[in-house]
Amino acid sequence: MTRYSERGASWAALAYGPGFALLGFLAELATGTPHTVAWIIVGLGLAVITAPWIHARRRFLGVRVTDDALWQGRERLPLADIAEVDDVGAPAGARVLGGGWTTPNKFGTLPVRLTDGTVVLAWAKDVEALRTALRAPETA
């Protein structure tokens, strides 16, 4: 069962390019003869280059807490390995979960102490909700 989830990106962003092309077509239609084929190509082209971006964000920036694991991007951390999520300091050089060098932009950081004593950095857009999901495994 999923306790907490962030998708990383929404597939709704795929509609931005074709929407922009539609607005361009309508503006051109209002001012003269529109270039219909060109606007179709622009709309499809923008959708094609947006799809890999959305897929990558969903794959590498997704956060999920299930009953047995914390998923940060493609990295899985068993909840049994987490010792503490409250009042944990972040030492310099702490490893960031998910495989990146730093916490992703626009994401907050949650230092997590593991059962072996090391501290790692979890991340989420809503750090308090992530902390709550990690804190009480038996009540979620």
Results as ranks from 00 to 15, higher is better:
F25T: 01
F25D: 00
L26I: 10
L26G: 06
L26E: 06
A27W: 07
L29M: 07
A30G: 10
T31N: 12
T31S: 13
T31M: 12
T33G: 08
T33S: 12
P34E: 07
P34S: 01
P34D: 07
P34K: 04
H35T: 13
T36V: 13
T36K: 02
V37H: 08
V37M: 13
V37R: 14
V37Y: 07
A38T: 13
A38G: 10
I41S: 09
I41E: 12
I41A: 15
L44E: 03
L44D: 04
L44A: 15
G45E: 02
G45V: 02
L46P: 01
L46H: 03
A47Y: 03
V48A: 15
I49V: 15
I49C: 08
T50H: 06
T50C: 08
A51I: 06
A51V: 07
A51L: 13
P52C: 01
P52A: 01
P52L: 00
W53T: 08
W53I: 11
I54H: 07
A56F: 10
A56H: 12
A56L: 13
R57E: 13
R57W: 06
R58A: 02
R59M: 09
R59V: 11
F60K: 11
F60Q: 12
L61N: 15
L61A: 13
L61S: 10
V63D: 00
V63Q: 03
R64S: 13
R64Y: 09
V65C: 06
V65A: 03
T66F: 06
D67Y: 01
D68F: 04
A69Q: 14
A69W: 10
W71N: 10
